[in-house]
Design a protein around this nucleic acid. Structure first.
Lengths: 181, 181
DNA sequence: CATATAAAATAACAAGTGTTACAAAACATG
DNA sequence: CATGTTTTGTAACACTTGTTATTTTATATG
C-alpha cells in the first residue's frame, strides 16, 4: 500500500556519528549527512524533528561508544586507577573529536561523572582498599588522580602531550604511587 | 584632503576581542562586530584583509591577555609551581572562552609552551633547586605538575570541577608535595 | 494490473555568512 | 569656499545553513 522505507533512522544516525567522529560535531549539516547517506535531506527530517534532535542522538551514541570502549579496553595495569587512565588517554588519542564532544563540551551536556557512571565501580573498590589500608581521604585521592588523568588526556587531544603507551604507563603508575603515599 | 578615520583597526580589534572573551571565537562575524562597533562592515575590511586576519589578531590579543594576567597574578603560594597553578585555574574560571581558545584549541595554534614561553622562568628555577636537592628527574617533575594543573583548569572551564581558591590552594600544595617526594 | 499511500527527490524559502561594487559623506588642502 | 581623496554606509552577490512545500517514485493491497 505504500513505498518501502529505504533510509532508516539508524542509517542516518550511523552516518552522522561517523562524521562527528571524523570531523567533529560542528561539521554535521543536513546536506552533508544526506550526501554521505546517498539520499536527499528529506529522510533526515522525516526521522528527526530537526538537526538538534539528530545531534542529540549523535551525542548519546558517543556516550555509548565511550562506555563500550572503556569496558573493552584491556586491563593490563596493576591498579584500576591506572587502567582507567590508560583507557582514557588512549581514547583521547584515538578519538580526538569524540573526546572533545564528551569531555570538553562547549554546551553543557552530561558531566564527566555521569558519562563514567557505572564504569568506575572497580576504581571505587580500589578506593575502599586504600581507605582500609590507612588512606585518610579516599575521596580526595580519587579526585587527584582523576584530575591528573584528565589533564593528560586533554593534552593528548590537543597534541601538547605525545607519549607512547609505555611512557604513559610509567607516568600513571608513578603518579598513582605518589598520591597513595 | 581626505575624510578623517573614525573607526580604527584598534577599535575593531577591541570589539572583536571582547566578543571572543564573552561568546567565543566562533561567534565573531563581520556584521556582529560592526554592530557592536556602531558602524557598517566596511571599516573592518579596510583594516583587515578578511575575517581570518581579524580572528588571527584576536588570537594574538588573547595570548597577550593571558600573559599579562599571569604576570600580574598575586604570588601568594610557597612555590612557583603552585603560583602557576593558582593563576592558570583562576584564568580558566574567570575567562572560560579565552581559556578554550588558547589551551583547548580546535585548530592548532601556539602550543601550551609557546604561550607560556618566558612566563615559567621562575618555575624552571624551582626545578633547578629540586635538581640540586636530589630530585632525579626534574623534567619529569615539571611535566607531572603541569599535567595536573592543566587537568584542574580544564575541568574548571567545563564546570566539572568547582573548588574555592582556598580548596584549590590546598590541593595544589598537597600535589606538589606528593610529587617532590 | 490499477491505485492509494507513504517515502524520497527536487526545489524553493528565509536567514545568515564573507566579501565587494558603488554611492554618500566628511575633511585637508588649493 | 570649492575640490578631490579617503572613509563610511548601502546594497548587493554568491554561498551555506535549516527547514518545508511540492512533485515524483515505489510498493502493498484492492
Amino acid at each position: 500500500m505504500a513505498r518501502k522505507e529505504s533510509i532508516t533512522k539508524q542509517m542516518i544516525l550511523d552516518v552522522a556519528f561517523m562524521m562527528a567522529r571524523e570531523e567533529g560535531m560542528q561539521n554535521i549539516t543536513a546536506r552533508r549527512v544526506a550526501e554521505r547517506a546517498n539520499c536527499s535531506t528529506q529522510p533526515i527530517f522525516r526521522s528527526f524533528q530537526g538537526m538538534d534532535e539528530l545531534t542529540d542522538g549523535v551525542y548519546d551514541r558517543a556516550v555509548a561508544f565511550f562506555q563500550d570502549y572503556y569496558r573493552l579496553y584491556p586491563r593490563l595495569e596493576k591498579t584500576p586507577f591506572c587502567n582507567l587512565g590508560m583507557a582514557y588517554v588512549a581514547f583521547a588519542r584515538e578519538e580526538k573529536e569524540l573526546f572533545r564532544i564528551l569531555f570538553v563540551p562547549e554546551k553543557p551536556g552530561k558531566s564527566l561523572y555521569e558519562i563514567l557512571n557505572g564504569s568506575t565501580e572497580n576504581v571505587k573498590a580500589e578506593i575502599q582498599r586504600a581507605a582500609a589500608s590507612g588512606c585518610q581521604d579516599p575521596g580526595g585521592l580519587f579526585m587527584k588522580i582523576w584530575i591528573f588523568i584528565h589533564g593528560a588526556a586533554c593534552m593528548t587531544m590537543t597534541g601538547d602531550y605525545d607519549l607512547s603507551d609505555q611512557e604513559t604507563r610509567k607516568l600513571l603508575n608513578d603518579v598513582c604511587q605518589s598520591f597513595m603515599n
